[in-house]
Every structure is written in C-alpha cells, then in structure tokens.
C-alpha cells in the first residue's frame, strides 16, 4: 500500500517553478530517504505533503486521500518535524507537549510514554535552555503525540553533533522496526540516508532524477573496476578497446556497467598472457552517485 503518492506535483513561487511534476511513491513500512541539493525543492515538497503549501487537487494523495479535501483526516495520521523543531521556548518541554495534547485531544498520559521513548527525562526546564539535540528529541516526541502511521522528518539531524546524529538514527530505526512507522526523511547527509533508508528519491531542480531502492541506484549506475597486472600499460590498451579506462600510476580504473564485464576483462588479460594481481569491482557510494546525478555537467 502506498502511504504517499504525488501525481505530477507542481508548485511555483510567483513565476518561478519550484516543483516540476513530481511523481513520488512511498510504500507503507519503509524508511524513505529524500535527497537533493539545497534549493532543489525538498522542503517545498514536504510543505505540499503536509498541506502547508497550496497545490493542485489530487496531486498529493496520502493514505489514498487528497490532502486538499481530507486535510484533517490525513493529518491525524501524520507526525512531522520540519527543519528545526518549532517549540514554545518560554515553556517547559512538558508544557509544550501538554499544549499539543490539549489541541489534539490526546490523553495526557501519552506525554510520559513519549518522553521515555525519546529519552528526554529532564523536561521541566524551559525549552530555551535545551541543547539542540534535546529540542530535536522533543520535536520527535511532539510529532509522535497522536501515534501517527507516517512520520515526515525534514533534515532531522540538522545541527546535531555525531553522538546526536547516532541517537537520532537509532531512534528512527526503532520507530520503523519496533513501532511500524513509515518514515519519510529528507536529508543532505547522504551517509545517513545510506545507513537508514530502504528506499530513496533524488530531487534535482524540482524534478525527480531517481526513485527506488538504494541498492537499485547502485546497480543502475556505472561501477569502477580496479585492475592491477604484470603489465598495466599493455592491459590498459587492451581493455580500452571495449571499456573506458583511466591509467593511474599503479592501477587501471575501468568503467564497467555489469558484473559480467569483470569476467570479460579477465578473459582479455588471460588470452594475452598478462598476470592478474588485482581485479576488484568498486561500487560508487551514494555520495558519488548523488553528485553524478545532481551536478550539471
């Protein structure tokens, strides 16, 4: 079942198009990473998903319903954290959650459950005295208040130190695996997305340039094969007849597309009596793929 579905989603800032026909599909139970460079339209997409930006009818469907016509019904099932957590700094963490409980008619006992879950024990002091990590955890607790099926988190690790990022990653995984939440997470920290997300989409200038499983992305795009032989110069000349090659001081880097290309290169070298010392496929990591997809040549 698709929890999020956008159909040709468009949005303009005045005359400037920000989103150019986005077709997103997020499946129930997934951790969906939403990547893109700054200004690519990630936050605008999230605003559209939450009904904060006005979009054409039926272009944003959540739980099979249109956000334009079923806003309240949909929002009952969504918790969100957009960039930095929006909190009343002059009140305590407990008061912040209590206010949200009253606004959403949520039982007060939920506050303690959530504070335990996000490991926020000292919630009596004013939020203005919290560290950013504590604010982010309180923001997550606020997002979980109504026990939503879907969590939409926009850059949840923004400004956190490495320990905070690790804790946040752990919390997100726990929410997905132990509580069955579907999580839609935008981030510019590609390593984080690679570690957490089962599915991802990459946005460039308001258009999706990839959507699918993280492993599909890696398989879909070119890999490098590192080759070291008894005669690298001759090997490079032979391989170059079929594959693009770059010869460095000690290694040959051949650009291949499929796994069987490794066997083809191996046969070429064997037939020419060249000893093979190393034949190692090197997958590009998500970061390299991301830059290849989002950088204008």
């Amino acid at each position: 079942m698709n929890v999020i579905e956008t159909k040709s989603l468009v949005y303009d800032f005045g005359s400037k198009p920000v989103l150019n026909g986005i077709d997103l599909t997020v499946q129930k139970g997934s951790i969906f990473g939403f990547l893109g460079p700054n200004g690519s339209g990630k936050t605008t997409t999230i605003r559209a998903l939450l009904g904060l930006a006005r979009v054409p009818e039926k272009s944003v469907m959540l739980f099979g319903k249109d956000i334009r016509t079923h806003r309240i019904e949909i929002l009952k099932n969504i918790g969100s954290l957009i960039e930095y957590p929006a909190l009343y700094n002059h009140l305590s963490g407990y008061d912040n959650l209590h206010i949200l409980c009253n606004l959403t008619s949520t039982p007060k006992k939920r506050i303690k459950e959530l504070l335990d879950l996000v490991l926020l024990t000292d919630c009596s002091k004013k939020v203005s005295k919290y560290s950013l990590g504590m604010k982010q955890r309180l923001g997550i607790a606020a997002a979980l208040l109504t026990d939503p099926e879907l969590l939409i988190l926009d850059e949840p690790t923004n400004g956190l130190d490495p320990a905070g990022i690790r804790d946040m990653r752990h919390l997100i995984k726990t929410l997905n695996q132990d509580f069955g939440k579907t999580i839609f997470i935008s981030s510019h920290l590609l390593y984080e997305v690679e570690m957490m997300c089962s599915h991802l989409a990459i946005l460039k200038e308001g258009k999706l340039v990839f959507q699918g499983r993280a492993c599909e992305l890696k398989n879909k795009y070119t890999k490098l094969l590192l080759v070291d032989t008894s005669d690298n110069k001759k090997s490079a000349e032979l391989i170059e007849q079929q594959y693009p090659v770059k010869l460095t001081e000690n290694l040959i880097e051949a650009v291949v597309k499929e796994e069987k290309d490794t066997a083809v290169i191996s046969r070429i070298l064997f037939r020419n009596d060249i000893d093979i010392y190393r034949l190692e496929p090197k997958s590009q990591n998500l970061e390299e793929l991301f830059f290849n997809l989002t950088t204008n040549d």
Binding site: G51, L52, L75, I78, S80, L87, Y88, L100, T104
Partner: peptide, 10 residues
C-alpha cells in the same frame, strides 16, 4: 510555530 500549528489535525 505556525508550521507546528497548521500540521495538527485541527
């Protein structure tokens, strides 16, 4: 805070 208020089911 509006972004918090307007994403509540209210």
């Amino acid at each position: 805070m509006w972004k918090q208020i307007y994403v509540l089911p209210v």
